[in-house]
Design a protein around this nucleic acid. Structure first.
Lengths: 331, 331
DNA sequence: TTGGCGTATGTAATCGATTACACAAGCTGG
DNA sequence: CCAGCTTGTGTAATCGATTACATACGCCAA
């Protein structure tokens, strides 16, 4: 494993100065044609690749943005990631994807160590003090932080939840349970609030037993099926605040001999890829994930390329209900 | 947005040299206690964070490894990623996750730009010349490259496929179709080979129509259901070379009024999270994904920390069949 | 008292690129 | 014919940390 060639090696090989090599690669039009040819030949011959650390150091930027999400396993993030890659690619930026659930020390450095130019933050539950310590522009996506004043792109979670619950009410359901999300999460709160609001708008008051604790995961959806099934006078419909938990719930109902939608209607939230192909296909609230990713990435990238501060605005995109086969009228 | 403090600012604040600041942070035991206290105070007061680009440049390493996968949307990768993060974290390394399907130029630089110390490559279809151009250690995971001599960690795909097909044969199926994977992919080839081998071992010769073109995706699984359903004298069981395509296949069968497993048995490959919770739960070949991630990451990390070259070995872990409810005897 | 050693700290070279500035050659126009 | 401009290239400063080497001090044993 021999040493990587550096710019001086290339310069020597081409018989020019390092400055000329650098210019040939970054601003070719400022170099004479014969020289340029010699340099490019030397580059090819040596297999030279610029050292990013040296360039980042000198230019004080990294040509990279970081996407920071909790739990990359979540299928929900996939199309957002794809959209971000797309935008970054056309701007000549690299996307680094990192898990926001790793050890705190490493995270704190992330926004201040010169390795990234900007952050797309998909986790609303990080320590606000740490986030404030980051010295690069940040755009929040999907989630947001109630206190910190950061630009964000999200969907109208309250309205989405209302759409879902209104749909169930329209079908004639009166006892509608809500399978919640993680404690302290802004999405959990907003969706539960939408559920409550939709009910009270129709004069239905939610019973305490109808709010089932959850955490967005499939495993919790499975467990919730037992909780719900064990209740006397149980709800005839369940609004699950995530698709994953909805699918877990339905699957476990099936094993308990309870049929969806015949015995209980289920609505989800997110519209992940699998929902359309589940049996039964899941009625759910669709979030424009790709659009959110595009918008957030564009805001960040244009702030970076124009060296302009981000305006602290909360973009709220509409969500819509996708009615499939997991819901029907009671009885 | 004021300038980030650098090590000289901290040194000035603490009344010491930059060398002492650096030593305080990396080898505290080599600095006197009173000085150390003053420096740490100055660090805290200024909010100083070391610039990673400068450190990487000087130390000629990045304290980071890169995980390079095609299509991060694929749920298959999640637990591998988690396992890798775990190993890297305990070694004090950062994990960068990148998409191997981005523009070629950027990819070529990845392995030679000093931003990463090693690569876990989950894509076997990259240009071998480019991969050879990378000057950091590489470990392939799941997939492998037939020609390049790179260390790899994978499961026995041929044996796994045989397990699946043997299971169907044991149930009494004689006409067993195979829904293939992407053209040119090593996994596709191995799994199809296992299918063929299992059949011929029992004296069954696969009919041409029984090999259905696929690409591992759910969408293709859906389309394949039509292809298969349109056949006369169709197979009574289908071995799908990926879970995603199996779920798509089953879902579309359901819509076509064909019931799984009553009318057709289906086996998948991968054992992704959803498979256990699908209706019906999917019989599939389980791959030890977490174990593969752990093993590959450990190999890479120990090569890095011991500055030892990787030994070019192909670790092949066993796969096993998980029998669930998507398979049964014909008629 | 002095030579030798260990500890604590400072000085300055170094990593590899980019780029401000200097300079030389060639060209243009008055 | 020369001032002034353009074009092409080289010289050297620079980014911010780490670290080899130098130095200064205190302590102990001979």
């Amino acid at each position: 494993m021999e040493r990587r060639p550096n710019i001086a090696d290339v310069a020597r090989l081409a018989g020019v100065s390092t400055a000329t090599v650098s210019r040939t690669l970054s601003t070719p039009e400022r170099v004479g044609a014969p020289t340029r040819a010699r340099v490019l030949e030397a580059v090819a011959a040596s297999g030279y690749r610029a050292n990013a650390a040296a360039r980042d150091l000198r230019q004080r930027r990294a040509r990279a943005i970081t996407l920071l999400a909790p739990n990359l396993a979540n299928t929900f993030f996939s199309s957002i990631i794809a959209a971000v890659q797309e935008v970054a690619d056309t701007a000549g930026l690299t996307v680094q994807i990192s898990d926001s659930q790793v050890e705190g020390m490493r995270l704190a450095g992330l926004g201040a160590d010169g390795r990234t130019d900007g952050i797309l933050l998909l986790d609303g539950q990080l320590d606000p003090a740490m986030v404030k310590g980051w010295s690069v522009p940040i755009v929040m996506v999907c989630e947001w932080m109630p206190d910190a004043t950061l630009p964000s792109v999200s969907t109208d979670n309250v309205a989405g939840a209302r759409l879902a619950v209104d749909h169930l009410l329209d079908l004639g359901h009166l006892r509608i349970a809500c399978l919640g999300g993680p404690e302290g999460n802004v999405l959990s709160a907003a969706r539960a609030e939408g559920w409550r609001a939709a009910l009270s708008a129709r004069g239905v008051s939610p019973r305490p037993q109808d709010l089932i604790a959850g955490d967005f995961t499939m495993a919790r959806g499975v467990a919730a099926a037992w909780d719900w099934a064990a209740q006397t006078d149980r709800a005839t419909a369940v609004f699950c605040t995530s698709d994953e938990s909805a699918l877990g719930f339905i699957s476990e109902c099936d094993r308990l001999g309870i049929s969806v939608p015949r015995d209980v209607s289920v609505v989800g939230f997110d519209d992940i890829e699998f929902s359309d192909r589940f049996i039964p296909p899941l009625t759910t609230v669709h979030q424009p994930r790709r659009q959110m990713g595009l918008l957030a990435a564009k805001q960040l990238v244009s702030a970076l390329t124009e060296a302009r501060p981000l305006d602290v605005a909360a973009e709220v995109l509409p969500s819509r209900l996708v009615v499939r086969a997991s819901t029907t009228s009671p009885l």
